[in-house]
Design a protein around this nucleic acid. Sequence first.
DNA 1: GTCTATAAATTGATAGAC
DNA 2: GTCTATCAATTTATAGAC
Lengths: 201, 201
Amino acid sequence: MTRAYDSTTKRAELIRAAKELFHQQGFHKTTLDNVAKKASVPLGNVHYYFETKQALAEAVIASHSQGLREAFAFWESSTDPLERLTHLIRAPLGAVESVIRFGCPHGSLCQELEKLEDDSPLIKAGASLLLAYIDWAHNQLQLLGFHSETARDLAEQLVAAIQGTMLLAHTLRSPELLARQLSRVEAWLKFEVASLQRSPA
Amino acid sequence: MTRAYDSTTKRAELIRAAKELFHQQGFHKTTLDNVAKKASVPLGNVHYYFETKQALAEAVIASHSQGLREAFAFWESSTDPLERLTHLIRAPLGAVESVIRFGCPHGSLCQELEKLEDDSPLIKAGASLLLAYIDWAHNQLQLLGFHSETARDLAEQLVAAIQGTMLLAHTLRSPELLARQLSRVEAWLKFEVASLQRSPA
DNA sequence: GTCTATAAATTGATAGAC
DNA sequence: GTCTATCAATTTATAGAC
């Protein structure tokens, strides 16, 4: 019943391999041959599934988007929005070694894609990842009682802090920095929420 | 007396061109031919000044380091460390269009270089740029009266917030986000300093 | 659908005339 | 020191057998 390597699986396998290599080596340094080897697919065959390297990258980003949606859904099993946001803040700690060695898979990809041609669809696709974080945080903050505009502001601040923290922890190869600064972000968020509840708008 | 294009000038011109192109297109996408053309130097001649592309990149980073030292020296013409740090926070606003279109020249370069081979000297060189920011902020915070450990913590938080803000503003192409969130960082820092002065350690 | 072989283009680096 | 021409390697993409 489950054909372990039918064509759909191979396509998925290529995406999985590319996703991992893009994170570890970056988009530019990763060759189609690298991806093909990792996915145990002959080089020439890659183009049967993806016309160009760019098309493969689009599929990788779509897969990241899907992964984000699943993470959001999972965190929403908590009923308290503050608790949900805490899951977001702590998420990098669930993959410390990876974040320290390779940075945030979304943030670093995003920044690399930004250096492509101005009209590349990959730029917009990459940006949609960071936007997804902000939008989701925005929603959770509104559920906590913040007005839309304030919630937007806080969501941006939250995502910026998390991304900046990962960049520093990665660059300085410091898991301690990651843990320490994410705790700070968490404390800050709790404080903001508590302030709101003391003096509701 | 001033030979406009003696060999020292050409070398500097190549660095200048590479610095700009690395920022706009990234390290990988920038070819030696691009740099040569921008500096009005024949392609083959680039290797007279820099043996490899990597050596050119090292010179670019050294130039960034020098630029940072000059910026720090300039900001230190303010006597109040809080005012100095405010200059740091507002610096991106002095080059808004550039930051929005291309991101932070140091942060984005740093993240791209991280994707090179683990033992590449460029990785350490790039990291030294972000470290310079942290160290300088650390010093200023100590001058304000924070204990070394607290100052370190706050310095990391400050640089992370600035870097994260630039990443978001760049990715979302939003000068408004940049201005808004940097104001928030500024307000946060003022609050921290005021708190310390109300209850000195 | 799957694979091998190879074309076509790019690009870092070098050789050698001046 | 400066430049032209070119090599050598890499890599995306394609052609065509099975």
